[in-house]
Design a protein around this nucleic acid. Structure first.
Length: 929
RNA sequence: GCCGGAGUGGCGGAAUAGGCAGACGCAAGCGACUCAAACUCGCUCGGGCGACCCCCAUGUGGGUUCGACUCCCACCUCCGGCACCA
């Protein structure tokens, strides 16, 4: 028999498929289309197991759709701009383009070993001028629409990446950079923004798309819509400076609780609020200024900790509460942020916890204006022991007393404010506009020119692309190399022809990936040609046919980054008339992460001597972990150390011993120290295993699984199948190097059950034939449903069951028509999952090339019906016996058989049978008393 | 603190219009083959028992139901996100 050698058959078929253009996605109006897309990788130069985990199941599904009769496009490209290329340029003097294209070439080579149906003729790399010309083109579109603007504001800056970041790219409580993990600082800079906030409400509407709840929740929370009112407060006229302009003392505040206005006893401004300097009384100036500086410093270093005590300073000025004309003091405090709402709040201490804490600390009055249920239940304590934010009736609020708060009180008070000209209904969002300026070279240039005469002038469409110069100098200055490239920087104004300067910042790479799904329609469209703003950025026929994306897959870590930006981009493109739909991806699913494999370190006993706090090894023994008795005893510690190896390098071991207290010992190992490893003649330090926890894979943690090595050992098909089988795809989990053996054994069984004639033969029976047919139809049904539902692990499990059934039927049916049908169907079901194996065996059986051009098999419900069925019988809800009956037995017959079952009779004897339930003839439930 | 998600054998995980818990696999144990090992094949494999019957068991405690991993209430733990958002 020919053995299964994936290393031979896989490259062979990959080459043939490519030569035959088997996966070319060509517009074909006679077929329904299916656009399957998986997130494009950054070309780091090395494909890791995470790429395989994300891409191969997506490929399986694309192949499945293809067999179902869809014309499938499954393209791949590279998110090729970004910092690593520029850092390589700084460190090693390699041109970013050269570095990037080299990485793309090697990654493509690795990706071809997946056996995926990527259509490489649609490949797009975002760093090539034919691509970024259009990224610039979209920027101009957005600029024309008023969706791109420049403003000075406090922005997030990563000192490590030496560039500004979007708010979404600052992660977590520690406020670290999404890319490099460095702590982000604040800077006041003039930067370009995209007005994603214009689409806040639309982005909250997920009704047209099938996306995971988790992603929808994350985006919803990030957008952070809250409804309320804007209320106009005025600074007391005597507290305004003499030169105050008309309207300068107007303080707009946003509140979700306008019904509590009568309880607003002070106002708080953000320390950076522009009005602070104008209204602060001379005697308060020193204190206010000191506080402002302190707040600024804090926002840079230690961010707001949750438990921090409230702090603030009185400005000396007062405002007038518009509902009762009372003078209320204006304070500044760092718990009010300039970036949310208007940067000013009305403080209602009785009904807001933060305001309560502040009022208590500074002895401000806390009048009750809502008679909340909790407060009444507590016996109306005064002074209030805490804030009462709950529901109740309004009191001390003039004519509104007795109104139920918050509803309908909020609505009624808002309506009244409108009639008074003192407020209006308003909505606020946490979402900020998307800062896209990056002070880096390796990104798409922002196509803008600054002219002394004409101001900000967009580069005319006809002049695109603004090309990155290839002679830029890379210095670790922290400023864009473009700024120091005279030829790039200096230009002429397209409007007046005078001397002008180019924008030297480039765009956030998320701008490139916000439209890449469209780039695959016509990669590098009309490269080298002059195009106008009113032309389309891709071939219209391609777009009309393929768009939008039907299924998108990728990592959930992009929930509020790429996945939100690309929705925004598409909505903007729709409003520009460029596309005619508002959602780029109809269905999206996210995969989990494969983590590093945990491992215990070897248990070692080491003889040697102490040298200070380190231990010098004379001889090392690797022993059994279970042997806890030999763990280091304190009294022996001067000559011997024993424990688990936590870490190892070329000259030392870190050993965790059983000694109380200081149990971590660093053991120095001189060259030539004898190492005894069981099962090895001559042990070496490198043979000793050190401890690994379940953690994300990373080179520094030495827990990386290299796909290339797995392919060499097991073949791509086995790796594909294992990645589908080992975990729930959407969840992921730690790698298990032993688990793949089960899949490899399974594939070998498939090989044998198809190719090897059984030694024994058995007599076919009608019963066995029926069973085989049933298993076959069951497999077709289940595998199809599971692939449709992204339930990859159960799809493989069903196929394993089917192969087990075939192994059993082999002796009786080898060579029969039924056997032939059963095997062909097996190969068809395997085709998307293990494409090379299926193709090889398909050819081996003499079938016409290619298995991937075949239709997905159909199943017949009639074939799933069993002739007899076994039905469990319950007494008071517990299974006490089983009966076997013909499938068409009536309910009465089932009941009779159940009552006749011997063990059931034991339970019914002498008892009263209350009732017998037979739901759907699947089960009998007898209730006795 | 708030918002999501999840808790099932030694491990990965099956099973939810409520109906035989543990499919499929890993690991482990025993056996066959082999001079031997590996491979391969067969059997066992949640706990209490040698075995049947039976009892316990899907994070905890209640509830609904003839019947609950599945539904309801309260709680615990873990993971992810947000975090003084007015």
């Amino acid at each position: 028999m020919r053995e299964y050698h994936p290393q031979e058959i896989e490259p062979k078929w990959q080459q043939k498929w490519e030569e035959d253009g088997l996966y070319r996605a060509v517009v074909d109006q006679s077929k329904p289309k299916f656009y399957a897309l998986t997130m494009l990788p950054y070309p780091s130069g090395n494909l890791h197991i995470g790429h395989w985990y994300a891409m191969t199941p997506s490929d399986v599904r694309a192949r499945f759709k293809r067999m179902q009769g869809y014309n499938v496009m499954f393209p791949m490209g590279f998110d090729a701009f970004g910092l690593p290329a520029e850092n390589a340029a700084i460190q090693r003097g390699v041109q970013p383009q050269k570095w990037t294209l080299g990485n793309i070439a090697s990654m493509k080579r690795q990706m071809r070993t997946m056996g995926a149906m990527f259509d490489w003729e649609r490949e797009a790399a975002s760093c090539l001028p034919g691509y970024y010309r259009w990224t610039e083109w979209f920027f101009l579109k957005l600029y024309e629409m008023g969706l791109a603007y420049r403003k000075k504001s406090p922005v997030d800056y990563c000192p490590q990446c030496k560039t500004t970041l979007a708010r979404e790219q600052v992660i977590g409580e520690d406020r670290v950079c999404e890319r490099c993990g460095a702590e982000v600082i604040k800077k006041d800079l003039t930067q370009w923004f995209l007005k994603i906030t214009d689409y806040a409400d639309e982005l909250l509407d997920f009704s047209q798309i099938d996306w995971p709840k988790q992603i929808k929740t994350l985006q919803t929370n990030w957008i952070g819509r809250s409804e309320g009112a804007e209320v106009l407060f005025k600074v007391a006229p005597e507290d305004l400076p003499a030169d105050a302009e008309e309207g300068e003392g107007e303080l707009l505040v946003f509140t979700t609780r306008p019904d509590t206005l009568w309880g607003a006893t002070f106002m708080v401004l953000a320390p950076e609020h522009p009005l602070v300097k104008r209204i602060t009384k001379p005697e308060r100036r020193a204190a206010v200024e000191a506080y402002r500086l302190e707040a600024e410093r804090q926002s840079e270093i230690e961010r707001l900790s949750t438990e921090k005590e409230k702090s603030g300073v009185f400005t000396g000025a007062y405002a007038i509460n518009p509902v009762n004309e009372e003078r209320i003091p204006i304070w500044i405090a760092d718990y009010v942020m300039l970036t949310y709402g208007t940067g000013a709040i009305m403080a209602v201490p009785a009904h807001d916890e933060r305001d309560f804490a502040f009022a208590q600390k500074f002895n401000l009055s806390i009048p009750v204006v809502i008679e909340t249920e909790e407060w009444v239940a507590a016996g109306r304590p005064e002074p209030l022991p805490r804030a009462y934010p709950g529901t109740g009736q309004m009191i001390n609020s003039g004519s509104f007393d007795g109104t139920l708060a918050p509803h309908p009180a909020v609505e009624e008070v808002t309506a009244w404010l409108v009639t008074q000209g003192r407020g209006k209904a308003a909505i606020n969002y946490k979402l900020h506009d998307w800062l896209i300026s990056r002070q880096r070279y390796w990104g798409a240039p922002i196509p803008i020119i600054y002219c002394d005469q004409c101001g900000i002038v967009p580069v005319p469409y006809e002049d695109l692309p603004v090309l990155l110069p290839d002679d830029a100098e890379f210095m670790p200055t922290g400023e864009s190399p473009l700024k120091y490239n005279a030829e790039f920087l200096h230009t002429t104004c397209p409007r007046c022809g005078g001397p002008a300067l180019r924008e030297t910042d480039t765009m956030d790479t998320f701008a490139c990936s916000s439209w890449y799904q469209y780039a695959y329609l016509s990669p590098y469209y009309r490269e080298g040609e002059v195009v106008r703003g009113d032309e389309l950025p891709w071939d219209a026929e391609e777009a009309n046919y393929w768009l939008p994306v039907d299924t998108y897959t990728g990592g959930a870590e992009h929930a509020v980054l790429h996945l939100m930006y690309t929705r925004f981009f598409t909505k903007a493109l729709r409003d520009a008339g460029i596309v005619d739909f508002g959602e780029p991806m109809l269905q999206y699913r996210s995969q989990g992460i494969i983590l590093g494999e945990p491992r215990s370190g070897d248990f070692v006993e080491i003889n040697g001597t102490w040298e200070g706090s380190a231990f010098q090894a004379d001889e090392i023994f690797v022993t059994s972990f279970e042997d806890e008795d030999s763990w280091l005893k304190p009294e022996r510690s001067d000559i011997c150390v024993a424990g688990e190896v936590l870490d190892r390098d070329e000259v030392s071991l870190k050993v965790r011993t059983a000694v109380e207290g200081e149990n971590l010992v660093v053991v120095q190992v001189a060259e030539g120290t004898p190492v005894h490893v069981p099962g090895k003649e001559a042990g070496a330090l490198g043979d000793i295993l050190y401890h690994l926890d379940v953690e994300k894979m990373s080179k520094s943690k030495k827990n990386v699984v290299a796909p290339d090595e797995l392919i060499d050992e097991y073949g791509a098909d086995a790796v594909r199948a294992y990645l589908m089988f080992g975990w729930r795809w959407e969840r992921g989990g730690p790698w298990d190097s032993q688990g793949i053996g089960g899949v490899v054994r399974w594939i070998n069984r498939i090989w044998k059950v198809v190719l090897v004639e059984p030694r024994d033969s058995a007599a076919p029976t009608s019963q066995a034939a029926r069973t085989l047919r049933r298993e076959m139809h069951q497999a077709i049904k289940s595998v199809g449903e599971d692939l449709e539902n992204f339930s990859f692990n159960t799809a493989i499990a069903r196929l394993m069951e089917y192969v087990n059934a075939l192994t059993e039927a082999q002796a009786a049916y080898w060579g029969s028509d039924l056997w032939s049908e059963a095997l062909d169907n097996l190969l068809l079901l395997l085709a998307p999952i293990t494409p090379h194996l299926a193709e090889e065996l398909w050819a081996e059986r003499g079938n016409a090339y290619s298995v991937h051009e075949q239709s997905w098999p159909t199943w017949d419900p009639a074939m799933l019906v069993r002739k007899t069925r076994e039905i469990p019988v319950q007494i008071n809800g517990k299974v006490r016996g089983h009966i076997t009956l013909a499938a068409d037995a009536g309910e009465e017959a089932i009941k009779a058989a159940a009552l006749a079952e011997p063990n059931i009779q034991r339970y019914t004897e002498g008892k009263e049978i209350v009732k017998i339930i037979v739901p759907g003839k699947r089960l009998v439930s007898i209730v006795v008393r």
